[in-house]
Amino acid sequence: MSTVIARTVTRTVVPIILVTAIALLLQGHNLPGGGFIGGVLTVTAFALIYVIYGLDYLEEELLHQIRAPLLDSIRHGIVENYQVAFGVGLAVAVVAGLVPLVFGENFLYQSHWYIKPLPIYGKLHVASALAFDLGVYFVVVGALLTILAVVGTE
């Protein structure tokens, strides 16, 4: 059982971590970061919650979701969601790689565009690699949370 101090601080700190994580994910193409780092940092935020609040809290209090798990051994239905997450992440990454085939390019071909007439920003630099990175992010988040949750349940 953790102390009030720990809980309170966690509530403040977790958003900071998550924001940092998302920032790292999005800026990855130009600055340090990327899908993997962002993903793992996200997972550490969850890990913090697990450590301070325990496994049940996340599921029951935060997500209000109780689902019958596929496997009896995994008490937490949320693990299911994690698994879907990494499956989907892989799918996203592969689909991102497959799209260029439609345009006659090779598998995993990446491109980038400047979207010019855009209010406020003027122009926005969009790289198709972001989609791939997003896939990486989901895989990492899903997979690591699965590991944490499963091992934690034991």
Binding site: S2, T3, I5, A6, V9, T12, V13, I16
Partner: peptide, 20 residues
Amino acid sequence: LVGIVFLFLTAPTGAHLISR
């Protein structure tokens, strides 16, 4: 700045938990 804030938030908490 965020780093400083973070450090000031977390260092005491860490110490608290360790001492506990």
